[in-house]
Design a protein around this nucleic acid. Structure first.
Lengths: 131, 131
DNA sequence: TTTTATTATTTACCTAGTTAAGTATATAAT
DNA sequence: ATTATATACTTAACTAGGTAAATAATAAAA
């Protein structure tokens, strides 16, 4: 296997494991957090907006959103179009958000601490060339 | 989310999807292939050697190896130590291996076609600095 | 030799991604 | 107005990763 692709997979697994570790004390998984995060940024979103934004398939989001609702992180409302579901953060999620967010920002900084700002930019640029 | 980490996750998903696509005509999934590939390189391996090499947890390998055996790709033998299982490619796997391998090498080349050799080296180096 | 600790693998149960096919609503075409 | 098509979401079934705990065999210690 191309060592580049191999390394990319390894880092991806490593990072999601570390993210899960960081989120453990808040009873969240990384993918759940990524959904909460993008809902927070957009105030409210439909499921389609979420899966398009995160670039995953619809059923993944259906499942994660339902789980987050069960756990009390989000509220599911219905939009004008009766097919679509609009989703927003619950009160408790809004309150906890800043704490978790800063923990995650620290985590992210920790992960790239070995890179200078210039290298970070470079790495992002190179990753974008894949495909 | 740090755009770098976000991009890395996106590419990881993209690459494994594309790898699955490439392997579809050979009735394999990317993770199954990665197990076959490393067994082939080492002629035979114990489960522990496999999961250490691929840097995943043991239960993942137990499952994939059993599936590969069911599908007739590998044979499971028992080593001297009666706890361990030794695994090697089946006859049909040995025959099909070169075809699939060259398809995968083409795939890998296609994925990094946007990068010069220098950029590939650079990208690998930068990825290794994560953590 | 008996007990204890370690190692190899498995089992059970989560999250998380995929595809394929199904349902319900909305929109467009006839 | 009916029919056909597209859109939003869901369900089912699969691969694939993880942790925690169980089992069996081996190695080390008492």
């Amino acid at each position: 296997m191309n060592p580049l692709i191999h390394e990319l997979f390894q880092k991806s697994r490593f990072l999601s494991q570390e993210a899960n570790n960081t989120l453990k004390k808040h009873n969240l998984f990384a993918s759940q957090w990524s959904v909460l995060y993008c809902i927070q940024r957009h105030k409210e979103m439909t499921l389609t907006q979420i899966w398009r934004y995160l670039n995953v398939e619809a059923p993944t989001i259906t499942r994660t959103v339902n789980r987050l609702a069960e756990l009390g992180w989000i509220e599911i409302c219905s939009g004008k179009d009766r097919r679509e579901k609009v989703v927003k953060l619950s009160q408790q999620a809004l309150e906890q958000f800043p704490v978790i967010n800063s923990a995650m920002m620290e985590f992210e900084d920790r992960m790239v601490v070995g890179l200078t700002d210039e290298e970070e930019k470079q790495l992002l640029k190179l990753l974008q060339k894949i495909r």
